[in-house]
Structures are given as structure tokens and as C-alpha cells.
Simulated assay, not measured.
Amino acid sequence: MIKQPERFSPSKSFFRMVNYFIEEARFWLKDAKGNFIDYQLELESEFGEITRQNGSFSRSVILGVHIEGKQKDVQVHNIYVKIKGNFEANIEENNEDLFDKVCKYNGLMNLLIIARSFIATTTAQMGVHPVLIPMVNLTKVEIKG
């Protein structure tokens, strides 16, 4: 007997991305033999001041994604993408700490998903095997800022 899928209606989040844009994108891709490339990923983050206006908190979040790819100790890829997102939330005035934490994790994760798609699509359009950023567990990383 096939189990019926469970259905649910998710509630809207109090946290939302207002907009985003790619501030910088650099792609250096050398012809690589085969598809096995050892990638090293480095992320950098920058958080704007939290402001409060009309009952909402807002802040900008910047994520830099740096990827180096090597084949047998020879660098074949060097990619850097910097993406900026603006986020806001309607929460109680005394919950600025909550907004700060949500920006640091959910905001960065949303930007990382967009950067991942941008890098994969751009590299595929350049005629190389698409570069895919691996899944990252940001809850295991201490994010400062």
C-alpha cells in the first residue's frame, strides 16, 4: 500500500528578502582535463547596521563566495562572487537580537543559494562543467559581525 503524502500549508515568515544584486563577479577558468576538480570554498560575510522604521527591522547582508579549483596541484578555476541582499522583518521592537540571528543564518543561506545558482549557470554558459557550491551547514559555523 502506498502511503499518502502529508500535506501542509506553511505560514509566511516574518523575515523577508526585499531585494538582492550581484556586486562583483570574477571568473578565471583554465581548460581542465576531465571533470574531477578539487574545490576549496571560502565564504566572507558583512552585515550592515540594523535599522528600525515603520515597525520593521531592516539590514543589508553581503556574502562573498571564493572558490578555487585545482587538478593535481595546478589551479584551474578561481571564482569570486559578491552578492548583497536587503532584508526586513516585522517583529516586536525588543527582538532585535532575534532579527540579528535570523539575518546571520537565514539571510546568508538565501544569498548562498542565489550565488550557487549564479555560479553554476554562468560556468555552464562558459562551456565548462558547471561549478556547484557544495551544501553548507551554517549552523556549524560561528558567524561574526
Rank of each mutant, 00 (worst) to 15 (best):
140 K>F: 06
22 I>C: 08
36 F>G: 11
13 S>M: 05
105 Y>C: 07
110 N>R: 10
106 N>L: 02
115 A>Q: 06
9 S>Q: 12
31 D>G: 08
73 D>W: 01
55 G>E: 04
131 V>D: 14
102 V>K: 14
116 R>V: 13
34 G>N: 01
40 Q>N: 08
117 S>D: 14
144 K>D: 13
100 D>F: 01
135 M>H: 03
90 N>H: 13
17 M>V: 06
124 A>G: 09
78 N>P: 00
90 N>Q: 15
29 L>A: 11
86 N>Y: 00
101 K>M: 04
118 F>A: 12
113 I>A: 15
62 I>D: 01
136 V>D: 07
142 E>K: 14
77 H>M: 04
18 V>H: 02
126 M>G: 08
46 E>Q: 08
100 D>K: 10
3 K>A: 12
22 I>A: 06
32 A>S: 08
94 N>A: 03
69 G>I: 06
116 R>Q: 15
8 F>N: 15
61 V>K: 01
29 L>N: 10
143 I>C: 11
99 F>V: 10
34 G>C: 04
142 E>L: 12
28 W>T: 14
48 G>D: 08
66 H>C: 05
111 L>C: 07
22 I>V: 15
144 K>A: 11
128 V>T: 13
9 S>L: 06
48 G>W: 05
26 R>I: 12
23 E>A: 00
76 V>K: 04
15 F>Q: 12
122 T>N: 09
7 R>L: 15
118 F>W: 09
51 T>C: 00
84 K>L: 10
76 V>M: 05
